[in-house]
Computed example of a mutant assay.
Amino acid sequence: MKPYWSLARMAWSAVLVYRGEFLLQLAGVAVQAVALFAVWRALFTGDGGGELAGLSWDQMKGYLFVAFLTGTLMSSFTDGQLAVRVLDGSVALDLVRPIDYQLARFAESLGFLVGELLVVAVMGSVLLMAFGGAPLPDPGQAGLFLLSLLAVVPLKFGLVYLVGLACFWTGNFHGLSLSRVAITNILSGALVPIALYPDWLQLICMLSPFPGIVSTPALIFLGQVRGTEAAYLIGIQLLWIAILWIGTRLLWRVAVRRLVVHGG
């Protein structure tokens, strides 16, 4: 495990070196979160302070905070760092190193994650205070929420890693990254709670891994799902983690066959 720990520390060092780019990309997520808070506050004000999607305004603030938190984890900075190894050819060097490529990239992602958590702690606190705070879960729900939040990390990594591997075929990741973010925002419930979607779109969401990124931890945080139901949703998260981990591992074996290295 020592090589992977070293990779995680190197990734954290890269965050410190490229802190301007790192903070700028996370600021983009924060701006989106502020806009969502403002839009939803206007919607609740226009509705006379009632409920939307079964949530009060105070609960919606908690939902949006979780969406901001999970949106910050494995940000586009991480996305780019994974893809660039394929695009600049440095992946060829990884093939001769005695480490597992997938585990190495996950270790690096955890290094970036440290910086993301520090930023979200500051930005998220300021955001909530600016909009009047939000209710916190009771201790039992808080434990389930933390489990669900921990599952978001490898789940989101699987999707980001998948985009990185797709660069073997596309030769570019910007379009793929933007598409991934857009699809994730819609199908995860980051922009609009899934309960407000039409039935056919809710079905598509439920058949995908995306609700596990925002909807599941948010509903647990708010106490909308408890006990067995919460454990079931966490189990779904773990199932998709396994599917993505194994699936991308098989895709990696196919992808490296396309690698062409020029030189002597």
Rank of each mutant, 00 (worst) to 15 (best):
R85C: 09
A33C: 02
V181M: 10
L251G: 01
L250H: 11
L26N: 12
F77R: 14
L162G: 09
N172R: 10
M60R: 11
L36M: 05
H174S: 05
R180S: 08
D88H: 10
H174A: 04
R97Q: 15
G263M: 06
A121R: 13
A231N: 03
P139A: 04
I204T: 07
L69E: 05
F68E: 01
D79S: 12
E229A: 15
Q141E: 04
P193W: 05
S125C: 09
V192N: 10
L165W: 01
S188E: 06
F106C: 01
S6N: 08
F112V: 12
D199L: 09
V160A: 01
L16K: 15
P3E: 03
A218L: 10
G89F: 07
V261W: 10
F157C: 01
S177I: 01
L239Q: 15
R180C: 06
A151C: 02
E116W: 15
V261L: 13
L127G: 10
G111C: 10
L52F: 02
F131I: 03
Y63R: 11
L16V: 13
L222Y: 14
H174Q: 10
L36K: 09
G49D: 03
A151V: 00
L87P: 04
G62L: 05
L24H: 02
T70K: 07
S90L: 14
G189A: 13
L244E: 03
G124Q: 09
L233M: 14
G235E: 13
T228C: 13
L219E: 14
L203Q: 14
L162A: 11
A190H: 08
L203D: 08
G212W: 01
L155C: 04
L73W: 06
L251F: 06
L136H: 02
P198A: 05
I241R: 00
R85W: 09
A53K: 04
Y63C: 09
S215P: 04
I246D: 00
L93Q: 15
L222V: 14
A182I: 02
G189R: 06
L251K: 03
V160E: 00
V91I: 15
L238G: 12
Y63I: 05
E51D: 06
G223P: 13
E229Y: 12
N172G: 05
I99N: 11
S188C: 02
M10D: 07
V31H: 08
F106P: 00
V15D: 07
C205L: 02
W57G: 08
G140D: 06
A92S: 15
F145Y: 05
G111V: 09
C205W: 02
L159N: 04
E229V: 14
E108I: 09
P137N: 06
L196K: 04
S75H: 07
D138F: 01
T184S: 13
F210T: 06
G143D: 00
A14R: 15
Q102T: 02
S90M: 15
G46D: 09
A35P: 06
E229Q: 15
M129R: 14
T45S: 10
V260F: 04
I213N: 11
E229W: 12
S109P: 11
A8K: 07
A30V: 03
